[in-house]
Each structure stands twice: as structure tokens, then as C-alpha cells.
Simulated assay, not measured.
Amino acid sequence: MDLGLKDKVVVVTGAAGVKGSIGETIVQSLANEGAIPVIVCRNDRGYGYEEELQKRGIDAIFVKTDLSKPDEIKAAAERIGEKYGRIDALINNVGVNDGAGLDASMKDFMYSLQLNLVSFFAMTKYCLPYITKAKGNILNIGSKVGLTGQGGTSGYAASKGGVLGLTREWAVDLIKEGIRSNAIIIAESWTPSYDTWIKSIPNGEEKLKAITKKIPLGNRMTTPEEIADVCLFTISEKSSHTTGQFITVDGGYVHLDRALLTE
């Protein structure tokens, strides 16, 4: 299916993670559709991704930005606007499950909110003139943690709950402009960081088996490619009458009846 994303300017935050991370996978999927990905991230790895994309003939750029700092976000939005004059879609993807729990310092809790929630607001605020010009749309990457809690990660849980609140608030705010706002909710996805976590804990393989056993559809984790596919469809005109929605891509992990999980 042609999603009609060719030459669309799509900004993706937190997209300079390692190969196979969700943000990086979204960027590659956009490039494969002929879109123009704009990578906004603090990791210098983004320069290499920019070079790779440009060698493919894609007018993509990397805008190095500390997404915990609103002033840097404002400067990034202005640079994108100056180069392209429009933003067809903004994918707020940055997120770190940083373990800022009740035992964390106030400084660590506030930093978690700054990175995982305030960055979504600042990025949307400063990109909005260019989104409005293009009649573009906004897609926020959420997490099951914002719905279910997880334990030991108050900052991330509060942030991801807030992201869902902002998603519907913006759908209301921007409906007269014809700008859609949606969220993708992710549960258990097999990313490089997940692999690193499993390898770092005692009995990691047993823990992995216990988790995947609880995922109803296929008893397997969601792949980053499956998440990217849903993201691309949602920002495309194929999803032109969808706004204010939370789209859960998780194999039924969060919402389906546990009675499905019989031996």
C-alpha cells in the first residue's frame, strides 16, 4: 500500500538510538516510504544516520538537541522550519524508563518529567506553526506504564500518563485547524535496550520466557517494525479521520482477558 508519505517532512524525536531501536526503526521505515525524516536527538549517532540517509538521496537532517532543555527544542524547531518551511508530521518518540521511583530525589523526578513529558509539550508548541502550515498531524509514543503502572518508576509513569492526556487535549485544541493528534501505546517490544536489560538481570532467560508467555497473540514480543508500520499508517492520509485515539500495539498484552493464557 502506498501511504502517500513521499517527500513528507516527518520529525522524530529520540531517533538516534542504536540500530533496531524504535525511533531508528521509524526513521528507516519513513525513508523506505520516500519521506524526509528529521532526527531530533542528543546522541551523536544521529550524524551517521543523517549521512546514511543523504547517501540514499533523501534530504534528511539530524538536529542535535537535548530534549530535556526547552531552549534547545525551540532552536531545533526553528532550524527545521527554516530548512523545510513545514512539518507534515511530528512523532514525539523520546522516552527513558529511568527508574525515578518514590526513593528518587526530587531532582531526578523532575528531570524524568522534563525529558519524558515536557519535551512532548515543548516540541509540539514550537513545531506547531509549521505543522499548521502543512495541515500536518501529531503522533505521541506512549507506554503501557501510563495505564498500568510498573513499580519503581514514578517519573516515567507520570510522564506517560501525561502524554496520553496531552494527546486528547491537543486533539480538542487543534481540531478546528484540521490537525490530528494520536498516541501509540507500546507494551513489550524486543528492542536492543530490552535485550540489554534481560541480559543484565539474574535468570534473564527465564524472565523473558515468563513475559512472552503472557502476551496473548503469538506468545511473542512486538517488533519495532510492527510499531513503525502502525506509526506510518497513523500519520498518513490513510488514517485521515482518526484523532484523539490511543492505538495499542502489544499483541493484546494490556487489554485482553488473562483467561486466554491457559496452557
Results as ranks from 00 to 15, higher is better:
Tyr126Glu: 11
Tyr126Phe: 15
Ser119Gln: 10
Asp173Leu: 05
Thr132Met: 07
Ser119Ile: 04
Pro192Leu: 11
Ile175Glu: 11
Thr167Met: 00
Ser193Gln: 09
Ile138Phe: 05
Thr124Gln: 12
Phe121Ala: 08
Ile185Tyr: 05
Leu164Asp: 07
Ala171Asn: 09
Ile179Trp: 02
Leu128Ile: 06
Thr124Lys: 14
Ser193Cys: 04
Gly165Gln: 10
Ser193Asp: 10
Trp170Phe: 14
Lys135Asn: 15
Leu166Met: 15
Tyr130Trp: 13
Gly161Ile: 05
Ser159Ala: 15
Arg168Thr: 13
Leu139Trp: 13
Ser193Glu: 07
Asn140Gln: 03
Ile131Cys: 09
Ala157Ser: 14
Thr148Ile: 04
Gly152Leu: 06
Lys144Pro: 00
Gly142Ala: 14
Ser119Arg: 11
Ile179Glu: 01
Ala157Pro: 13
Gly146Phe: 13
Ala157Gly: 09
Val145Met: 06
Phe120Leu: 08
Arg168Gln: 09
Gly146Asp: 08
Ile179Leu: 02
Gly165Thr: 15
Gly146Trp: 13
Thr191Pro: 12
Ile175His: 08
Gly151Ile: 04
Ala157Gln: 12
Phe121Trp: 11
Ser181Asn: 01
Tyr126Lys: 05
Lys135Glu: 14
Gly151Tyr: 13
Ser143Ala: 12
Leu164Ile: 08
Val163Asp: 08
Thr167Pro: 10
Lys133Thr: 11
Ile175Met: 07
Ser159Met: 06
Ala171Gln: 07
Glu177Gln: 13
Ser159His: 07
Ile179Arg: 04
Ile175Pro: 00
Thr153Gln: 09
Ile185Thr: 04
Gly155Tyr: 12
Lys125Ala: 03
Glu169Lys: 10
Ile141Cys: 01
Glu188Pro: 07
Ala122Asp: 14
Ser119Asn: 05
Glu188Asp: 15
Ile186His: 06
Ile141Pro: 00
Gly165Glu: 08
Ile141Trp: 02
Phe121Ser: 03
Lys133Glu: 05
Tyr130Arg: 08
Leu174Cys: 13
Gly162His: 09
Ala122Thr: 10
Thr132His: 12
Trp170Pro: 00
Leu139Ser: 09
Thr132Ile: 07
Gly178Lys: 05
Leu174Lys: 14
Ile175Ser: 12
Gly146Tyr: 11
Thr167Gln: 00
Ser154Glu: 14
Ile175Cys: 08
Ile179Gln: 02
Lys133Gln: 10
Ile179Tyr: 02
Ser193Tyr: 09
Asn182Leu: 01
Gly136His: 03
Trp170Tyr: 15
Gly162Asn: 07
Thr167Glu: 01
Thr148Met: 09
Gly151Arg: 14
Ser181Lys: 03
Gly136Trp: 10
Ile179Met: 04
Lys160Thr: 11
Ile175Leu: 01
Asn182Asp: 02
Gly161Tyr: 09
Gly161Val: 06
Gln150Gly: 15
Leu164Thr: 06
Lys176Asp: 11
Ile185Ala: 04
Ile138Gln: 13
Val172His: 02
Leu139Met: 11
Pro192Ser: 13
Trp170Thr: 00
Val163Glu: 05
Ala158Ile: 10
Val163Pro: 03
Ile138Arg: 12
Ala134Trp: 08
Ile186Glu: 02
Thr153Lys: 06
Tyr130Asp: 01
Lys125Trp: 10
Lys176Thr: 11
Gly155Ser: 13
Leu147Asn: 04
Leu166Tyr: 12
Ile185Met: 06
Gly149Leu: 10
Cys127Tyr: 03
Asn140Trp: 03
Ser159Asp: 04
